[in-house]
Design a protein around this nucleic acid. Structure first.
Lengths: 224, 224
DNA sequence: AAGGGCCTGGACAGTCTTGTCCAGAATTTT
DNA sequence: AAAATTCTGGACAAGACTGTCCAGGCCCTT
């Protein structure tokens, strides 16, 4: 289903390439295949044996780098936390002449796969439904993200109340959009952008900001 | 995490209550605990042994009613399909004097847990991410639901284009809202309703329709 | 109350998983 | 070059799960 480059031993340093028989991996390698399994198959499929097979290495190796499977999952969670939330907050705080531009800034990181890892975010969200500790962390992340979007609307003259509801609409919709794993073409996506912005902001989108964003999205699409 | 009444042998017919030692269950019982496990713990936790323990029955019994675990999952999917989608479509087609009333009709089934089983819907959605066959079925469901909401906007004078984007906003947001598993009080939820409706429809909500819906939601909350 | 079909319990086999132990290969340090 | 350290392979133990087989308990019909 969800394809992404399979990070099976593609380390940067060619000196550490395997020789013959006795393959060596790093802690990073284990983490990478684990993240990949988490995103594509869910936390339940993050199995030591499977990861080892993907790395072409015995299971025993795993226990050198991690105390147990539980510790690996913990590391995975730390890894996620350092990536996504701060990115959204930064984007909502970028300078913008009008609310259209501001909203487009918000969308920027979601359109560009190299910025926000939607698969990872959603995998962690799914995981959080079953693990209270994970749930607490993602709840805090959501709260912080929504608060940032609320401030964005406030800076552009919306009342506290309207900022609150509009922020939730735009953030929840972004989540719902991804929950469906919509695989629309970028062209289709951009075709609806004007209508979305009208709904989100309540005003006709600024044509200048709209065009700038669409150009950005197209460039991502072609050689991103 | 997700609590719901544990349907552990609460059949309607008291005549079939267990006697002593030799407990009897029905195919429905297996399906019910299976659905419960699916919703609360995910498809991965729908295990014959676990379900049997919950029913207070040996695993062997299972294989009388179902050929295999796979067949149980298939039955679970059929069960879901018969519940949720048609309900949404019906609600969008209810007579409404204005778009506010229409949107509230759409929300009705989501506010009332006895109507739309959000937990089940989301569990199937999660399941669909890993099983292509499930994915196909839920994609068809989403398409049908969105199309129904589009028609709703069209009937209230929105252009085809605006109906399309607004329908997606309202449907995606509904999904995103649930993806977060927000556990707000009904009061908090209704407090934001006016702002949500403004965002969705682009016009100030009709006070009459707004009040009617809030009253309905409150009544659900108290003794629903 | 005897027979027969419906349904369950328990035993068994097979697979997959985590985690431990230790010999020894590969690499680095001395 | 020897010694120490780092890391892997393979064997072993234990537990969870699926699916099969069949004796026999329960209940309904006759």
């Amino acid at each position: 289903m969800n394809k992404r480059a399979n990070p099976v031993l593609h380390r940067d340093d060619p000196d550490k390439a395997p020789l013959h028989g006795h393959v060596k991996v790093t802690r990073e390698d284990w983490l990478n295949v684990a993240r990949d399994a988490l995103v594509n198959d869910g936390v339940g499929e993050v199995k030591v044996l499977t990861l080892g097979e993907r790395l072409g290495v015995s299971r025993s190796s795993f226990y050198w780098y991690f105390k147990s499977r539980k510790h690996l999952l913990e590391a995975l969670l730390d890894d996620w936390e350092q990536r996504n939330t701060q990115l959204i907050i930064t984007n909502t705080e970028l300078p913008a002449l009008n609310i259209t531009e501001a909203a487009c800034n918000f969308f920027r990181c979601f359109v560009d796969p190299s910025q926000f890892d939607q698969g990872l975010d959603f995998a962690v969200r799914e995981w959080s439904r079953r693990e209270t500790s994970v749930r607490l962390r993602i709840d805090a992340a959501d709260t912080a993200r929504i608060a940032a979007v609320v401030r964005m609307f406030q800076r552009h003259g919306y009342s506290d109340y309207e900022s609150d509801t509009r922020a939730r609409i735009i953030y929840f919709m972004q989540l719902g959009y991804h929950a469906l794993e919509v695989r629309e073409s970028m062209k289709t996506r951009m075709g609806r952008l004007e209508g979305y912005l009208l709904g989100f902001t309540g005003v006709a989108p600024d044509p200048e900001a709209l065009k700038t964003f669409i150009d950005f999205a197209q460039s991502i699409d072609s050689h991103g």
